[in-house]
Every structure is written in C-alpha cells, then in structure tokens.
Design a binder for these strands. Structure first.
Length: 454
DNA sequence: TTGTAGACTTGAACATAATTCG
DNA sequence: CGAATTATGTTCAAGTCTACAA
C-alpha cells in the first residue's frame, strides 16, 4: 500500500494486506479450492511422466542423488516424501534462477494470409474495387467483425481506417478515403458461409483437422525444463487482427500486426538444441536467461507491451508459485486480526497519509477491492481500483435506507466492469472520507496522499 | 527516491467438447 | 438422433507487482 518510510511492523502490515487483496480471498473461495486441488495433482503428473518414459538429459551434479543416480521423478517423489512437504515449499533455487536446462521448438506462427477467391468482391462507393493483397487482408479483419457492435463505434472506425490506409498502395490511398463508402458485405457473407461449411464437415475431415492439431501439439506443445517434459500454455503466436480493447478503449480498432520471426526473442539454455527459425528467416535474438520463466517473447505494437510464451499451470514452475501464494495466504490468516486492529487505530492518526492508507486498507479488506495502480492516461480505458478512486466515484449519505453512514461506490473497475455498491461504514471512516473530499473537484483523487508502491 | 520496463497472474469472451434431454 | 445445455479449454487484454536505472 502506501507509505514512504519503513517501520518494520508497518511494512509487515502492508505486505500482509497486499496478499489478502492480491489473492482476493473473499472473492473467489470456490475457485481457489479447485486450484489447490490442481497443485496436488503434480505428483500424479510425475507418475505419468515416468510411465511414458520421456527422454532424460545428461545429469548435472546437483541433479544426482548421493549415489550418483539421476534425480528422476521417482527419486524426486520419494525424496520429497522423505524430507516432508516443507522441502518442496522451499524455492528450488535460492539464487533466483528458475531453471538450469531449457529446450523447446520455438513458437508456431499464424498461417499466412490466403487471398480471397476472385468472385468475392469489395465495393467502394457502390463499385467493385480490387484491393492489393495487404490491404485486402486488413479489410477481411474488419469484415469478420462486421456483426460486432465494435464496428459501429467512432473510435474503432477511425483507428481502423488510419491503420488500414497504412497498408494500402498509394493508389488505394487516394481512392479509398471514406469508410462509410466501403462495403464489406460480400466478404462477410463469405466468411459466414465458410464457418458454416466447417460445421457441416464430415466426421472424417474433422478428424483430420484434429489429428493435425494433435501433431502440432506433440511437436511444439511441450518443452524440456530441467528433468521434466512440461506442457506449454500458448505455443501459438497471436495472429494479426484488429485490436479489441475492453470498455472505452482509445486504441480499439487499431491493427495488430503480424508477428514475424525477426520480432521473436527465444529463451533457452545454452546447452540445449536451439529452435530453428523458419527457412530464410532469423530470430531477433536468442538469449539464455534462466532468471525468467518464459520461452519466447515479442513486443506487441498496440501498447508496446511484451507478450510471452510460458508454461502450463500444471508445470512445476507455475505450480510452485501458485503454492507459495496459498502459503502466503495462510500466513496472512495468522495476522489479519492484528492488521485490522492496526488500521482501525490509524483512522485516528494525525498524519493524513496514514489516515488515507488506513481507510483504503479498510475498503480493500471489507469489500475486496483491487489495489488500483496508476496508469497512463489516454493510453487505456479510464478504469480505477481502490487507491485510484476519485471523488466522483463515491457518494456519502449520513443516512440512507434506514442505515447510517452509507458510502455509495460507482466506478468502472478492471475490464471496465462497473462496480456499484452501497455500504454502511463506521462513523470514523465516514468522517475521514468527508475530510478527504473537502475542497476537491470530482475528478481529483480521493486518496491523494497515497501511492501504491511500498 | 521516483519512474519505467519487464514479468507474471487473472479472468472475460470466445471456441470446442461432452453431456443431457426431447 | 439432433438440439440444447453444460463443462472444459483457449485466447489475450488488463491488471498487479518488482527490479532496476537515473
């Protein structure tokens, strides 16, 4: 949460609260339970690996047991049983490294664009217009979304046209300037017919496709991390298309460009067989960073953020992390009482900063709100979390519906999902809120003395 | 200390498979 | 049996948090 200095009890207090809020304990009880079960299935996974007899790598010293044998899944399992669970709950590597050996086949790229059959036409201003291949591809993205509400939104259309024009030949640029004069209907109908045809395919054809997918999965869907064959979560590169932001996103409709091998950074261990780029292409980089868990990354062109290919939740690396999370939650359970007492105390603090923090903490605890980091204005939809709440998002009533000191929340949270709630709060909280709102405009931050970082 | 890029989790929306029902 | 419903899997934008540089 917030604060500049670090008295240890306060730090602990914050940490614990972060955990509670981070893992939304109140919010997702059932799901959490299911997830815990998933973790326990790790052992059965090891068993399966054993049965299938996956290839093992040459041993590294520390992967051998005292007698110089492989630390195979079976060994590992029995060792773990011997030493007790605690051993597993410990980080496997203490130096921050995540693995020692990593080998994989690299990503699967999106299939290349297939031009439309010549009888499917695009019309501009009522007349057929033959598009260049590049422009046509982008046009099909739009055509595929024609039924979607998105395509009626002004920002979407504006962004689309701007990016589409970038893909046009200079000739097309001159002629095609008004999206309202563009008619994508024939394309749209064609795609609908295609997907219909796919549904009507015979059993045989469907099976063929399934088998092909299975083959790809077998070839690219697994990697070898240390001694284990692990399932990769997303081994396919995101195909090009139009960006669909959620809520009122200022960048909706922009073109998500096609990712090429030269955009791709490969991460694997030096002593592994490096994945090969497609013939005639090069990777952007091949690195060997065992401080991270990803296998492949690239930079996406809409927000400039980095996308990753990582492992499945069933993998050791994800499972352990998940486990840690629950451990933290368990630790938190032991001290929530103390934390609650502390923030109630802080409601009376003479320091504004601490008061604001304590009230925010109370909301997070009581209502399971998200922390609410700062975000870049204008780059994303306007949404907030607890610490980024603005005066306009809450409404105070000393009395409402027979209850005293009611706070009415109304704001857009993550994914622009509306949060609306009326809660009676304690008098002291109410008074504090009144204080925070004094002399402020609706668009001012409610917790202006708060910063989210530790 | 502050600002920022990078890493990683989350979950809504969509897609597909499995199951139930008339 | 196919249609309808439900369960399960995949995709990917949108969060959170951390490490590190200035």
């Amino acid at each position: 949460m917030a604060s500049e200095h670090s008295d240890p009890s306060e730090k602990e207090h914050r940490d614990q609260e972060n955990v509670k809020q981070k893992y939304g304990m109140d919010r997702h009880k059932d799901k959490d339970k299911r997830k815990e079960e998933k973790i326990w299935s790790y052992d059965s996974k090891l068993k399966k690996e054993k049965e299938n007899g996956f290839a093992r790598l040459p041993p590294v010293k520390s992967e051998l047991d005292n007698d110089g044998f492989y630390l195979s899944p079976k060994h590992e399992k029995s060792l773990r049983r011997e030493r007790g669970k605690d051993e597993w709950e410990e980080e496997r590597y203490t130096d921050g490294s995540k693995w020692r050996f990593l080998e994989h086949k690299g990503p699967v790229f999106a299939p290349p664009y297939e031009p439309l059959p010549s009888n499917i036409k695009f019309y501009y201003d009522g007349k057929p217009f033959k598009l260049s291949k590049k422009a046509e591809e982008v046009a099909t993205f739009f055509a595929k979304m024609l039924d979607h509400e998105y395509t009626t939104k002004d920002i979407f259309r504006k962004n689309f046209l701007k990016d589409w024009r970038k893909e046009m030949t200079s000739e097309e640029k001159v002629k095609l300037s008004d999206l309202n004069k563009c008619n994508f209907n024939e394309m749209s109908e064609y795609f609908k017919a295609q997907s219909e045809a796919r549904k009507q395919m015979s059993k045989d054809e469907k099976l063929k496709i399934k088998e092909e997918n299975e083959r790809l999965l077998q070839e690219y869907g697994f990697c070898l991390m240390d001694n284990h064959k692990e399932r990769i979560a997303n081994f396919r590169i995101e195909p090009p298309g139009l960006f669909r932001g959620r809520g009122d996103h200022p960048k909706m409709g922009m073109l998500k460009r096609r990712i090429r091998p030269e955009d791709i950074i490969i991460n694997c261990s030096k002593d592994s067989k490096h994945p090969k780029p497609p013939p005639g292409d090069k990777w952007k980089e091949v690195r060997h960073d065992n401080k991270v868990t990803w296998l492949v990354s690239w930079t996406e062109n809409i927000q400039g953020s980095i996308k990753y290919i990582m492992l499945n939740p069933s993998s050791r690396i994800k499972g352990e992390k998940d486990w840690q999370k629950y451990e933290t939650a368990r630790r938190l359970k032991k001290c929530v009482g103390r934390i609650r007492a502390q923030y109630r105390e802080d409601w009376k603090s003479k320091e504004m900063r601490i008061r604001q923090r304590s009230v925010a903490l109370y909301f997070i605890d009581k209502l399971a709100l998200r922390a609410g980091n700062e975000k870049e204005e204008g780059e994303t939809a306007d949404t907030v979390g607890c610490c980024s709440l603005r005066v306009e998002h809450i409404c105070l009533s000393p009395e409402k519906d027979g209850q005293e000191f009611v706070v009415e929340f109304d704001f857009l949270g993550k994914d622009s999902i509306r949060y609306y709630n009326k809660v009676p709060v304690e008098k002291r909280v109410f008074k504090n809120l009144q204080l925070f709102m004094e002399n402020k405009q609706p668009e001012d931050d409610l917790f202006d003395r708060l910063n989210v970082s530790p």
